[in-house]
Design a protein around this nucleic acid. Structure first.
Length: 276
DNA sequence: CGGCAAACCTGCGAGC
DNA sequence: TGCTCGCAGGTTTGCC
């Protein structure tokens, strides 16, 4: 499902349901997702208290007591849903169930199983191999033209491809890469290292703006994404180009409208007139 | 190291 | 109705 806004939406929902409470029972219903679960997954989690919920890029971090941290990635189709322990039995793709001491149940549901979970030391979380090389958070004040420009100057690939690289910027995925480039007026196949300073000066606020608006809307709900309370996000109504091939461009009067092309095996949506 | 294709999975809608 | 094909908010791996 999930890019930064969707994962942040999940974080906020889980924070309300889980923070301060005990993991009374954990049920792991299959041996692996994309990779095997870590050894003694259930045993290490059972009885732990959830101290805090954080997000880094598209990862959720559950800080637990006893210096333990649970790292969760939702992959393409993962959801975390809040329900009650007395509700219907788990379904086919409900792979992990967290029962809290409050009667709340949190279900990890992931049909494609591209998701991932790992356990690690909470105090050394930044050193974890999955987090170690991730780039700056785009909504942090430290993400600026000055910090982004040198990173882009090292890359000759198309800017759309580079925006998806989590070591360059954290949390952008296929939707928000297209949306940010449209808002910045930059063509997706431009080489990253050939962008001019004034273009990077448009790109940075475009990224911040589209992500901020999407977080405020509870993310985008296309196929799988739900907020943890089951409600839909609604930023899909704010898309200007994503999944709008053939529709009129909302930014200009060109006759071609929104185009779709494949970059790195994935769809990019753009307007050839407004984006140069 | 950079760049690119393939692989990992299941489900759904379109077209025949 | 039922089949095949293409496509899907991601990341890792392996090869050049």
């Amino acid at each position: 499902m999930p890019e930064l806004p969707e994962v942040e939406t999940v974080r906020r929902g889980l924070e309300i349901a889980m923070q301060g409470h005990l993991l009374q029972a954990v049920l792991q219903r299959r041996p692996d997702l994309r990779r095997p679960f870590p050894p003694f997954f259930v045993e290490r989690l059972t009885g732990r208290r959830v101290m805090a919920l954080e997000r880094r890029a598209k990862y959720l971090i559950l800080r637990l007591d006893e210096d333990l941290a649970l790292l969760i990635h939702l992959g393409m189709s993962g959801r975390l849903l809040i329900t009650r322990q007395d509700e219907s039995p788990p379904g086919k793709h409900d792979h992990v169930i967290f029962d809290l001491d409050t009667g709340v149940r949190v279900v990890f549901h992931d049909p494609r199983r591209f998701g991932a979970m790992d356990l690690t030391s909470a105090s050394l979380i930044g050193d974890h191999p999955l987090l170690r090389d991730i780039g700056p958070e785009p909504l942090d004040a430290s993400f600026t033209v000055k910090s982004l420009a040198p990173r882009l100057m090292k890359r000759s690939s198309a800017i759309k491809i580079v925006l998806l690289d989590q070591t360059v910027i954290a949390g952008i995925g296929n939707i928000y890469a297209s949306e940010a480039l449209f808002r910045a007026g930059i063509a997706p196949d431009r080489a990253a290292d050939e962008l001019r300073p004034f273009e990077i000066a448009k790109l940075v606020p475009a990224i911040k703006q589209v992500l901020t608006e999407a977080v405020a809307a509870g993310g985008s709900s296309l196929r799988d994404h739900r907020q943890p309370n089951g409600e839909l996000g609604y930023f899909q109504h704010g898309f200007k180009v994503y999944d709008r091939e053939g529709q009129p461009c909302p930014g200009c009067t060109c006759r071609t409208g929104i185009l779709r092309k494949i970059q790195g095996g994935r769809s990019t949506f753009y307007c050839a007139s407004k984006q140069r």
